[in-house]
Design a protein around this nucleic acid. Sequence first.
DNA 1: GCTGTCTATTGAACATGTTCAGAAACGGTA
DNA 2: TACCGTTTCTGAACATGTTCAATAGACAGC
Lengths: 224, 224
Amino acid sequence: MSSSVGTATKSERTRALIRDIALRSFRERGYDQTTIRLIASEAGVSVGTTNYHFASKNDLVQELYLDVQQQHRAAALPLLETSDDLVERLGIVFRTGLAQLEPYHRFAPEFLSAAVSPRSSINPLSSDSSESREIVVGLFREAIAGAADKLPAEFDEDLPSALMLGHLLLALFWVYDTSDGRERTSRLLERGLRLLKLSLPLVRLRVLRKPLRELLDLITEVQA
Amino acid sequence: MSSSVGTATKSERTRALIRDIALRSFRERGYDQTTIRLIASEAGVSVGTTNYHFASKNDLVQELYLDVQQQHRAAALPLLETSDDLVERLGIVFRTGLAQLEPYHRFAPEFLSAAVSPRSSINPLSSDSSESREIVVGLFREAIAGAADKLPAEFDEDLPSALMLGHLLLALFWVYDTSDGRERTSRLLERGLRLLKLSLPLVRLRVLRKPLRELLDLITEVQA
DNA sequence: GCTGTCTATTGAACATGTTCAGAAACGGTA
DNA sequence: TACCGTTTCTGAACATGTTCAATAGACAGC
């Protein structure tokens, strides 16, 4: 979090200060209540300075994304050491991903509204978000690669992206989940994982190869 | 569309005028470019008057929803006369639904952003949207009721709502669909329908009854 | 026709993200 | 030190949806 450490140019320190204050505010006050003027005021600078270092409010959200996904990675990696079962490993990535989001559930609608437009710079599928997106895709890739159960090689390429999309859909469900402790989202996830475990042997069936390939292609096409 | 017809109180005529101008502008200019001041100006009234008749901009979007869904119903009903096959009837409702949205695809991201928050009054699942939502749920209900193929009665209650949710998800895919003529969305729909047709006989299997029931319950829970 | 009450309308005010012309600070070079 | 170009910073300005006190209009009851 605190990147305003040690020595750096004045400019870098100002930038880091604005960033840290913004991120803290996002966590405490959410997206809407975190106004540019509030950030500027707390940082002791003018609105113009804030927009000089970060061209828009969404650029600051981008910083938040990165922070969250890095923590996601940090939380998932050690757990991935504990199992070589494919479905279990995927479950670890999904569960730790949801866990990172949990503190933001109060403000999730605000963030969702700002992020859901395909034209928004903070849309998880946008090119501006590629850095944090690739962290999640990479986690899924590693989850697959480190599993004892090997999948047909032809799926290796697109499956991680498709799983990342699945994670986004799960997050959408999560935003709408009003149950205590997001129990419904957990149930949906565990049920999906169970279903996946049961149907995984089918992937090896020749007859299903082509429809699966087509399904994967269609899903991948969303990101175009 | 034009509801500013014939005799009515002055107030009703002003309201209808604002409504008609707003709806036309939404169609021509989208959500963002349709500003309150522009509506007021075109209607020859002040901003205050616009907000007197419609408490918020989203109240005007609500009127648009209603208009679109009524046209959806008008487009679907005659086609439903032409088939008693369950899957085909569902297909008719889905396809005519997408057809109504098509003119708005240019502006879909703007509308999506405004509507996607669970707290938004124009969220399709909100209580404010119940009237237009029920039109779609009703269409699915009629599609099921008029089919030769009867489903187990226990599904009749919740299935229409679940299908409406499916329609919303399809619309989400549609927003992100950049292919010509929304070819990808069509493909996804037709593939889903084909899959449904193939797996429909399975519904009668005793073993699958309980998991299906649970799945339906989980889906229904989104709207809570 | 007068009066009083509700309805309808007005336009200024507010908070918001963003832009931008200009001021200030800085850093290197003559 | 003096000068100049670049970097950094400032605060006013703009457009937006929404609110609200004040005003005008409509209309019923007498």
